[in-house]
Design a binder for these strands. Structure first.
Lengths: 227, 227
DNA sequence: TGTACATCAGTGAACGCGCGTTCACTGATGTAC
DNA sequence: TGTACATCAGTGAACGCGCGTTCACTGATGTAC
């Protein structure tokens, strides 16, 4: 509740709010909680300062404006998504069949993605609220434990499938966009759209079918994949 | 610019704004234009009344609050999307191969959907901004020329494929969700996401690949489709 | 056909709200001597 | 080790904005007699 900053002062009693210590990080954290509950719209500069116990204008020492704060929160949400994907991938059982492992790790990107969207819809919406190119998305602030952004995790999984001969090299270019579209669309329909009311079991079943559809359909038409 | 209402008055000069005639429709129309430019957030009640040339509170004669106006605009956006899909389907060349026609009409749902999203991103976002179940989406205000909502057009296209033996009956249940997810996700990535900067040719190519992926992948794994 | 009247779609003014942002300031901190 | 001082992260008050919404009202319209 009261995390000490790096310079561990010899001061036992709370120093009120003056000279906060790490206000920037605290504001991003407060914004992250706001985003978790209410999505990007809920990331209100004044409310973030209120929660940290600081006057509204103090935020301007660390962010040029509200958009800069939101961008920082967005990066944090992307990092949380990346961790969720990594966790899902970590659950893939090892096997001697290298191709099968690569395929399962690829499917885990999709299931982890959708499951994060369902568990943290506010963060998910926030992660995609700042319209920036995700091509240069390898900023460490947007990455998970392996230092990869969600997009890079997807690309790596596809590359591994090619390496393991579970996907024809001819099918690889652009495949990340197809897979991403499918999974992203399902996530949106589940959290904001007509499927937002379905129970977990149904959502899981649809997700499973979807990632299998992608797996089947991603192979280029004229080049059947060697299994 | 000055469309006469149904009761064609014998009054040649504009009657200013008093007794508007069809203020409800005019407000929805103004809201529609606002949504077209700026999405659901831009549907501001005061701005709509301003454009119609009426005092802000006049809107409350026809809508209980802003949310009601937005819902009406949302329905209109859904109807516009339905028309776009119908137009795309109308472009499918006739053929003796009934299965091929059914498949092409199915693919046209996807291409029409994505192309509408690209051409009218504000309306597209607005169409999905009001979180309501789309299962009961056959309200005429949300339908296109054939009286079907976008979701119903998709379902009908899939049903036709089954009828024409272009899709195995076992693959039909739930297929609409898989197809919709893929196409919806691509639309979102193209208008709000990392693909918003790509040129038309690239967008069309990715769209084409995506709908083909869906077409290939939608067949249930254990039941290969007879084609 | 003419008149009295109820209806109700509009007006004009005002409200409270919370926002983002700016201003001049204050006082604890760390450094140079 | 002690002191003067520059730095700069915070304060407190205020701004203008545009929003959604409510109030008491007004006056054109259509209807009953």
């Amino acid at each position: 509740m009261d995390p000490k900053g790096p310079p561990a002062g010899p001061d036992p009693q709370p120093r009120e709010s003056y000279r906060h210590g790490d206000l920037e990080r605290a504001l991003v954290g407060a914004g992250f909680e706001l985003a978790r509950v209410g999505g990007p719209q809920a990331v209100v500069l004044r409310e973030a300062t209120r929660r940290v116990g600081v006057s509204p204008n103090a935020a301007y020492r660390h962010f040029t404006d509200r958009a800069a704060l939101l961008a920082a929160v967005c990066d944090m949400a992307l990092a949380a998504l990346a961790v969720a994907i990594e966790d899902a991938q970590a659950g893939v059982a090892p096997s001697d069949d290298r191709g099968e492992v690569a395929r399962r790790r690829f499917l885990a990107v999709g299931t982890g993605y959708v499951s994060f969207a369902r568990q943290e819809p506010g963060l998910f919406r926030t992660a995609f609220s700042v319209p920036e190119s995700l091509d240069d998305s390898d900023s460490p602030t947007r990455a998970g434990r392996t230092g990869r952004s969600p997009f890079r995790l997807l690309c790596a999984a596809l590359d591994d499938m090619v390496d393991a001969r579970a996907l024809a090299p001819a099918s690889r270019p652009g495949a990340e966009l197809l897979a991403w579209s499918a999974v992203h669309g399902l996530a949106m329909l589940l959290i904001d759209g007509p499927l937002r009311a379905v129970d977990d079991a149904t959502a899981d079943a649809v997700t499973q079918r979807l990632v299998e559809m992608v797996d089947r359909g991603i192979a280029a038409g004229q080049n059947p994949v060697d299994g």
